[in-house]
Simulated scan of single mutants.
Amino acid sequence: MTDTAAITADVLSRARRIASRLKGERQTPIVPAGNVAGRAMATVIAIMTFLAALTVGAVSLVGDTAARWQNDISDEITIQVKPAEGLDMPQALETARQIALQTPGVQGASILDEAATGRLLEPWLGEGVDLSELPVPRLVIVSIDTEDPPNFAFMRTELKEAVPQADLDDHRAWVSRLVTMARTVVFIGVFVLSLVIVATTLTVIFATRGAMSGNRHIVEVLHFVGARSSFIAREFERHFLRLGLIGAAAGGLVAIALFAMLGSFTAANRQTPEADQISALFGSFTIGWTGYAGVLLLIATVATLTALTSRWTVMRHLAEIDMISPVEN
C-alpha cells in the first residue's frame, strides 16, 4: 500500500507540474527531451531519411542524365564505315562526310580521327594500340537540325550507293531505350520512397505509443482533470517534431555531402579513361539544384510527417480513453 501511495503521489505531483503550464508557468514537459528512446528514434529516422535522400538523388541524377543523353542523341547521328578488303578508309570517310553535308537538314559533319577513336577504345584495348592493324570501324559525326531534320531514308540510300560499307545510325532505338529506362528508374524510386515513408510513419506510431505507455498515468490524470486533448497532443507533437527534424536533417545532410564528394572525386579524376566513361554515362555525377531541393523538401516532409503522425496517434489514444471511461463507470 505504501508503494502504491507513493507512486500515486508522484504521478499526481508530475501531473500538477505539467498542468500548471496551462496557466503559463514553465515546468517539466510531459515527454522527456533526452531519453534513450528518443535518441534511438532520431537515429532510425536519420537512417531512413538517408536512404530516401539517396533515392531522390539517384532518380534526379538518372533523369537529368537521360534527358542529356536524349538531347545529345537527338542533335547528332553517326555514320559508321566498316573496314573491308581494298577499301580506302580515308576516302570512304570523306565521301560519307560530303554526302551528309549535301543533305538538307544537316548542320555539320566531322570525321572522328584515329586519336579520338583510340581514346574511345582505350578502356578495352589499352593505350598505344595501332588501329591500322585492327579492323576497327570509323565514325563520322553528323549534327542535324532538330526542328527540320534530314530525310534519313534518303541519306541512307545515298550512302549505300556511294559507300556500301557505311551504315547510318539515327539512334532512335537508343532514345526509346533511354525513355523506358528513365521511366522505370523513376517508378522504382517512387516505390522505394513510398516504402521509406510508410516505415517512418509506422516507426513514429510505435514510438509515440511507447512514449505514452511510459507516461500513461500522467496523460490520463491530465486528461481527466480537464487538460484539453489538443494540449496533450501538442506536447507530443512538439517532442516528435524536434526528433524528426534532427534525424531527417542528419540523414539528408549526410546524403548531400556524399553526392558532393562523388561529384568532386569525378571532377578531380576526369583525365583517366574510367572517369571518361563515368562522365559519358552520368556527366559530372552531380545531382543539380533540383536534386538538392528534393532532399531539402524530403527533410521537411519527414519532420512534418513525424509530428503529424504523433499528434494523430495521441488524439486517437485519448479518444479511446473517452470511449472506455463511460463503460467502466
Score class of each variant (00 low, 15 high):
Lys160Met: 11
Ala166Pro: 04
Thr103Tyr: 07
Val142Lys: 03
Ser143Met: 06
Thr146Met: 03
Phe187Glu: 00
Ala166Cys: 10
Asp170Tyr: 10
Leu168Tyr: 05
Gly105Met: 05
Thr157Leu: 06
Ile205Gly: 12
Val198Met: 15
Thr184Met: 14
Ala109Pro: 01
Arg156Gln: 15
Arg183Pro: 03
Thr203Gly: 14
Lys160His: 03
Leu134Arg: 07
Trp174His: 09
Val185Trp: 02
Lys160Trp: 04
Gly118Phe: 06
Thr117Leu: 11
Gln107Pro: 03
Arg183Gln: 10
Gln107Thr: 12
Ala153Tyr: 08
Val204Gln: 00
Leu202Thr: 15
Arg138Ile: 00
Phe206Thr: 13
Gly118Glu: 11
Ser143Lys: 10
Gln107Gly: 12
Asp167Tyr: 10
Pro164Tyr: 07
Thr180Asn: 12
Glu161Ile: 06
Ala116Thr: 11
Phe154Asn: 05
Gly126Val: 11
Ala115Gln: 15
Arg177Gly: 09
Gln165Phe: 04
Ala115His: 15
Val175Ile: 14
Val185Met: 04
Arg119Ala: 12
Asp130Cys: 00
Arg156His: 12
Val175Gly: 10
Gly128Arg: 09
Ile144Tyr: 02
Gly108Lys: 08
Ile141Ala: 05
Ala153Trp: 06
Gly128Gln: 11
Gly126Met: 12
Ile188Ser: 00
Ala199Cys: 11
Ile141Thr: 06
Pro150His: 05
Glu122Asp: 11
Val190Glu: 00
Arg183His: 13
Ala109Val: 01
Glu127Ser: 14
Asp170Met: 12
Ile99Gln: 01
Thr146Cys: 03
Glu161Asp: 13
Leu121Cys: 00
Ile99Trp: 01
Leu125Cys: 06
Met155Val: 09
Pro150Asp: 08
Ile99Arg: 01
Leu134Glu: 10
Phe154Pro: 00
Trp174Lys: 07
Met181Gln: 07
Leu134Ser: 08
Gly128Asp: 10
Gly189Ile: 01
Ile111Cys: 07
Ile197His: 04
Thr157Lys: 11
Gln102Ser: 13
Val179Trp: 07
Leu131Lys: 05
Ile99Glu: 02
Leu134Trp: 13
Ala109Tyr: 01
Glu127Gly: 03
